[in-house]
């Protein structure tokens, strides 16, 4: 690999922009294709499809074996609410390979002592989230129970079409939340995208158990692999 390709690829990754590295496995020739360059590339069809699917693999073009290595932005989790569950969920999500940020305007909660080694932002979601540039490779989980903090985060996550949006609270709490958001003009399709009560139903009681159920639901929402039940059907 040429160092200049490596540096350019890292620059795209830092900006959360997708890129593909194309390598001729026999000749060793290699080039980097940025997302906005794919359309006019000689391999436009293959590259567009690869950007869509996110799947890397070997293709044969004119007798040459090319490795199409897709680099999508790292999956990221933004947690709104520096609460007890967040203290467990943040390190668990990092172990699972996610980039994690925690947002909470209450500085007593959002303290570095409670959240070592986490990107911690002690601001209101409406102030913090624009700079984080939420996208489809981002999951947002709302954990404060306080509509003044949770709701702006929820609206931003829906606007950005985040792949997973979860909100803590009972069915009753969620019904009230739905009422508020509907009154604020959010449509039914968007409201149906909110996972609430948050997490898969495993009878979780403690904060670590709830964190496991949230992380499991988030992983499933990526749909990278057919579930065993789907394969059997």
């Amino acid at each position: 690999m040429l160092a200049k390709n490596l540096f350019a690829l890292n620059a795209e990754i830092a900006l959360r922009r997708p890129a593909i590295l194309v390598t001729d496995l026999a000749a060793g020739a290699q080039r980097l294709v940025r997302r906005d360059e794919a359309g006019r590339d000689q391999l436009a069809g293959v590259l567009e499809q690869s950007f869509q699917s996110g799947a890397s693999g070997v293709v044969t073009v004119d007798g040459a074996q090319l490795f199409i290595h897709v680099h999508l932005p790292c999956v990221r989790l933004v947690i709104v609410g520096a609460v007890h569950i967040a203290q467990v969920l943040a390190p668990m999500a990092r172990l699972a390979g996610l980039e994690v940020a925690v947002v909470d305007p209450r500085t007593a909660f959002a303290s570095p002592e409670r959240f070592p080694e986490v990107d911690l932002i002690a601001q209101w979601p409406q102030d913090a989230l624009p700079a984080l540039r939420l996208d489809r490779r981002t999951a947002v989980v709302l954990l404060t129970h306080d509509p003044r903090i949770d709701d702006p985060g929820l609206v931003a996550a829906l606007d950005a079409d985040c792949f997973y949006i979860g909100a803590l609270g009972s069915k009753k709490t969620h019904a009230k939340r739905i009422e508020r958001l509907r009154a604020a003009g959010i449509g039914p399709a968007a409201l149906a995208r909110i996972h609430a009560p948050v997490g898969i139903d495993i009878g979780a009681l403690t904060p670590p158990e709830i964190a496991v159920s949230i992380l499991a639901e988030l992983i499933a929402a990526q749909g990278r692999k057919a579930l065993r039940a789907e394969e059997a059907a």
Partner: peptide, 25 residues
């Protein structure tokens, strides 16, 4: 991609910039 995969590429850049000879598999 995960943060771990990204971290390898960043480390590769650090190594190369500091003159370490390296290969990727």
């Amino acid at each position: 991609m995960t943060t771990a995969d990204d971290a390898i590429l960043l480390e590769a850049e650090n190594w190369v910039r500091s003159g370490r000879r390296a290969a990727l598999a």
